Amino acid sequence: MRIFYSIAIIFILMLSSCKKEHTWDVDSSGIDVNLVIHDISKNFFNDSIPLSKLKTDYPFFFDNSSDSIWDAQRLDPKEKLIYNESLKQFGDFKKLDNELIPIFQKYKYYFPEHETPTVFLYSSGLQSLDYPVIYSAQDKLMFIAMDAFLGEKNKFYDSMRVENYLRRNMYVERVPAQVVSAIAENIVTYSPRQQKFLDLVLYEGKKLILQDALLTDTPDEYKIGYTPEQMAWCVENEGNIWNFFVEQNYVFSDDRTLEKRFLIVAPFSKFNNEVEQQSPGKIGAWIGWQIIRKYIQENPDVKLQDLLLDMDSQKILQASKYKPEVNGNSTTKYQKKKKEGVDELYHYAE
């Protein structure tokens, strides 16, 4: 039975990948990228280097804490152990360099006005697990917390009681997706005046489209942080999920609790019914991703820059002709009866 289930998952994912348009196959290999990677912690834990020099070389790394606190941290055995664990995962950074250069080449292809950032690696003492990659396009700086990628079974995460659903993305193979996610936070337009559920869903979908554009050979589950089984569940239940949003009058709702239920990293999405624990977290982001993909399929001439800056969500939804089929044999059972006030959505794709 387990073998049959595994085959079914592979088959579903193959069907999904067959539908995908290869709109991101661009040749950016000739674009010059001068990528510089600095390991801040290598010098930080080298007690032969004066603290004053570190503060001069890396002023952005230090806050107003007293020198005695910094000196104690530099000598802390646990801090050093965490850093050494990080080096086991990252090695000599050659692999990371080979992974990041194509990302920044494609980034520069689509956004030539943005310069390649200087990348600083560091060990955060397990303090940056929630935000492992920070990027500032304006300052041309990127920071990667190496200790956020020690592997899901690492003993330090046990001591921190890190939840299992978070650990899935805490290994070094997920660094490229986290880097693009940080870039997306700078690139994709966010409007505080447009906060309908649809606006938020498409905002997340656009950030994932940037993953498609910059990580053309990366599996979808890496981009969104799902397991293959969760990806298969999403593909199988896409129509039912969208139908649920429509019939509950969520699509154009300004209820901010929907963001917590469907758009944040969580062990599962909050449908408030018996099937919710089968779902992965932030299912609304996955739906937004599929809407944007369908929009690109229907409008193949759209430029990535224009798409990421255009916040007219209703226009995108209508032009996408998004209307996934409700699967009657799905593991997810939602009510099929239309509710008053949602008829306008049913003819968007007609």
Rank of each mutant, 00 (worst) to 15 (best):
L96R: 07
D254K: 02
N299D: 04
N237P: 10
K321Y: 09
P50F: 03
Y226R: 01
T227I: 14
I183Y: 07
D301I: 12
E247Y: 00
E274R: 11
F271D: 00
P176S: 05
L81F: 02
K321A: 11
H22L: 13
V179G: 12
C18E: 09
I287Q: 11
D343K: 05
T23Y: 12
L54S: 05
F111K: 01
S48R: 08
D130L: 13
L304D: 11
H38D: 02
D312K: 06
Q314F: 12
P219F: 02
W70Y: 15
L198D: 03
I292S: 01
I49R: 03
A137G: 15
E99Y: 09
R168T: 14
N243W: 09
E185G: 15
L129T: 15
I10R: 14
M170K: 01
I209K: 03
A232V: 06
D71T: 11
Y5F: 12
D97Y: 12
L96K: 03
H114Q: 07
S128A: 15
Q105Y: 00
F271Q: 01
Q290V: 04
K108H: 01
L100D: 00
Y203T: 14
P324M: 04
D199L: 09
I101R: 08
K337C: 07
M1E: 15
E274C: 00
Y58S: 02
F244A: 11
K337N: 13
N84D: 12
R167C: 09
F252I: 13
Q230E: 14
S29G: 15
C18T: 10
K140N: 09
S128F: 01
P300F: 04
G30V: 10
I224A: 04
T332E: 10
L202Y: 07
V172M: 10
K294T: 07
L210F: 02
V326Q: 11
V179N: 02
L51F: 08
D158F: 05
D47S: 11
S17M: 02
L317D: 04
S28A: 15
D92H: 07
L258E: 07
E298N: 10
V180H: 07
V235K: 12
I264W: 00
I287C: 03
S181C: 01
K333N: 07
E163D: 07
E85N: 14
M231L: 06
I40R: 02
Y171P: 02
A349T: 08
K95V: 08
N84C: 01
G151N: 03
L215F: 06
P192G: 03
V26P: 05
W242E: 00
K336Q: 15
S17F: 13
S124Q: 08
S124F: 06
N237M: 00
K78R: 09
F61Q: 11
F271N: 03
R193P: 04
K206I: 12
D217T: 15
F156W: 03
I31V: 06
M170D: 03
A319H: 13
F268C: 10
R193S: 11
K333R: 14
S191R: 12
Q73S: 12
W70S: 00
V246Y: 06
I283M: 05
I183K: 01
G30D: 12
Y222K: 08
K94C: 06
N273H: 07
M146C: 08
F149A: 06
G288T: 08
L307M: 08
S330P: 00
S123L: 08
P192A: 05
E173G: 14
I12M: 09
K94N: 14
Y346F: 13
T216K: 15
K339I: 13
F44Y: 15
N169R: 11
L75H: 12
